[in-house]
Design a protein around this nucleic acid. Sequence first.
RNA 1: GGGCGGUUAGCUCAGCUGGUUAGAGCGCCUGCCUUACAAGCAGGAGGUCCACGGUUCGAGUCCGUGACCGCCCACCA
Length: 894
Amino acid sequence: MSHELPKTYDPGAIEVRWAEYWVREKLFSVETPQPGSAEASPPIFTLLLPPPNVTGRLHMGHMLNQTEMDIIIRWRRMRGFLTLWLPGTDHAGIATQMMVERQLATEGKSRQQLGREAFVQRVWEWKKHYGGAIQAQMKRLGASVDWDREYFTMDENLSRAVIECFVRLHEEGLIYRGKYIVNWCPRCMTAISDLEVVHEDTLGKLYQIKYPLADDPKQFLIVATTRPETMLGDTAVAVNPKDKRYEKLVGKKLRLPLMDREIPIIADDFADPQFGSGAVKVTPAHDPNDFQIGLRHNLPQVNIMDEQARINENGGRYAGLDRYEAREKVLRDLEERGLLAGIKDHAHAIGKCDRCKTIVEPRLSTQWFVKIQPLADRAIAAVEKGEIKFTPENYAKTYFEWMRNIHDWCISRQLWWGHRIPAWHCDCGEITVARAAPAKCAKCGSAKLTQDADVLDTWFSSGLLPFTVFGWPEKTRDLDVFYPTTLLITGFDILFFWVARMIMLGCHFMAGHPQGSVPFQNVYIHALVRDADRQKMSKTKGNVIDPIEVTEKYGTDAVRFTLASMASPGTDIAFSEGRTEGYRAFANKIWNAARFMFMNLDRASGVRPGNAAAPGGLDRLEDRWIFSRFYRVAGEVNEALEAYRFDEAANSVYKFFWGEFCDWYLELIKPRLSAEGPEAAKALALLSRLFEGALRLLSPFMPFITEEVWQAMYEGQPPAKSIALVAYPQLEQKWLNDAAEEEMAVLQELIVNIRNMRAELKVEPKVKTPVKIHAEACVEKLVEENRGMLERLANVEKIEFVSESLAKVAGARTTPKFEAALVYERKVDVATERERLNRELTRAEAQFANLERQLANEQFLSKAPAHVVEGMRKQAAELKLLSEKIRRALENLG
RNA sequence: GGGCGGUUAGCUCAGCUGGUUAGAGCGCCUGCCUUACAAGCAGGAGGUCCACGGUUCGAGUCCGUGACCGCCCACCA
């Protein structure tokens, strides 16, 4: 049987095949280990996929996120952990509702026409048809999640858990209902939380308006506002109690212009004497600060707008106008009456709806809130105590910053799609919070109860996921085994939305869990993926890179490797296709190296990977060297992944495979492979064993190509169903060989110098006669001992090592370790060589002088550590020798 | 208004606790179709590490100030 690997590497062809295989064979499905099972249970590693919106399609951020998670989880799995990576999707209240409403609009319908029940039904249908896009994409990308455990946040069991949490929080007094100023989106027509408001710096106007005194209309108090239309709802003007200017006015009345109402002048600390005139208009129903003032002074709350931010009947003749139309008219009318005292440019931040960018309206309305402080306190403590570790650590600071300034969380949404609030209203005014609809009102006994119309903020349910996915509130085995999850990998954009909420809710509901209440023990926060010009990707800019597109162009492995190699903490990733092209080349390199191996395996049947020698049996330098390198790199990669340094891990393995294994080892081993007999068989065994190890090392980063090659190596009888299920290489001391690495380094340097010499001297490459090289005494022995190994290179490079030192030397390369001279009788570019040698000499002398100066410095000698001083001394000596050698070489040039 | 991050080769970025000659990929230049790979091989050029000041025997690395770029948070009209 021979190993089939097509000549050209075509990622598309192999990736789809393995992606399907992994899913079909359920390779990443996990059975919950039962207690008391005989064999020692492996360490558990649990990872929760940040659930993408059902409406979602995969974008570059997802791909980075999933690549990182997949690398970690594949690595842990290969390291012997019982790994559970749990996938799911989020019902995404507003986003999904908007999507379906848009679809309805194309049919000329509105959700109101449909009615609530039919609309929700419609959303479910929509979900069934279009909701699976992102999972399909994930499968294509090979994410090694447990698809058998996939969840949806509106699944029945999860919904039940959400209700349970709500009811319990309410019972504990941590959820309350009240009439407050909330952020209201007049387009979505729902309340939104503080986090869903994005602030945008805008250059607006500050208007100064004259409010006449009621008993003396000739006198005015000037107030300043950015929102003149809200004056229609003013119920007071406040001045600072310490403000001498207005002392006598406090308690008097003003006549509110345009509305013809009298409002009091009150004293409140909120008024800043430094700002404007020091008097501030108070609109309790349309400004959060004014709302507070209103409460302190028992002011009426006049709501002047409807849910679409149009002026309502309380706005007198402005009723029916949109808020901005009203502003214009109010300003015109004030102007007409000579009450507009001034207009100034004014920079301020304006709040917009995160979803639709409509300017948010502070609106007085009755909503449900979570009393957040007690939850936040515990969440802060958990991170302070180190029960949760952030990487990069910096994010803990951001987290604390937010947590310590947190406000109560408005969790009710005036939407139809979502978890409906488990509260029932009776006409008598009684509200009952319960797990199921009560039969009758507890207060008046009426059976006519209606469920609260609102649904919960999407983030309320996703904040519960770390325990609800494991069956909470039941006491399940899953909860015992998999909670708390080990790691969370996510972007900083949902640090507050999701991460912080999970911590608060997890700490609360899972308090007392034997393995800790926190929802996860580690959080790794990754950066943003930007375009090649470091611009944020956005649909409007049209610079969105579709991961599926680049994947189809370069292969998933190449895209994954790009993301991993660029994922250094704290820096955003500027995704450039050039880089991906480079990593496709890397995959191609792996492919061709594999073909080379297979070519040899096919020729010498019977050799299997894995039946190679022990360290002691490596009698050749290059073998000792490459094994030592392999295990050292394995150590580096493990260490890097331990610290989430995907970039370092990827780069180490890249450099090893290409720069050492392919560039050097494969070349060195060629003559042995083409030899006959046991020598070739042994070389082949070593080669295939190394290759197999390298594939395992690479597998978490490039799961597809490594699977393809690995499976091919075993001719249909692999030792496991997948490379993903075999052990990950680790540092093994017994294979490390410092001497071999040092000796090899010298030989590599020698070869590089020879090549360099030839290139610079423009020795014709096609000469049949080898160029003679004399290596100096110190490496002569090394060269002699490894003649066989160097043969291949010598042959290709057409060089020959000679022991006799020849008089006529055309070139020389000198390093601290050796001197190599090129002995060449034919024409060489003497002038160029002289120039080069002179340059070298100047540099060596300058460096030497530098070191001399340092070494003459007593301060340095007494304070610097011995090894540094020693190193410098050695180097100085070598440089001195080097200078001499170069001078001699110059003389020899003639 | 508060907080955070960045500035290193033409481009995109590494550089861990300060220590001998600051690295990689891409791009560029030169030479090679050397029977695994031209998506390749070999060689090369290219950096006053944003500026100034300080600490130190020694600073890309630590401290301070400033400049520029970016991000997050924020109920002062």
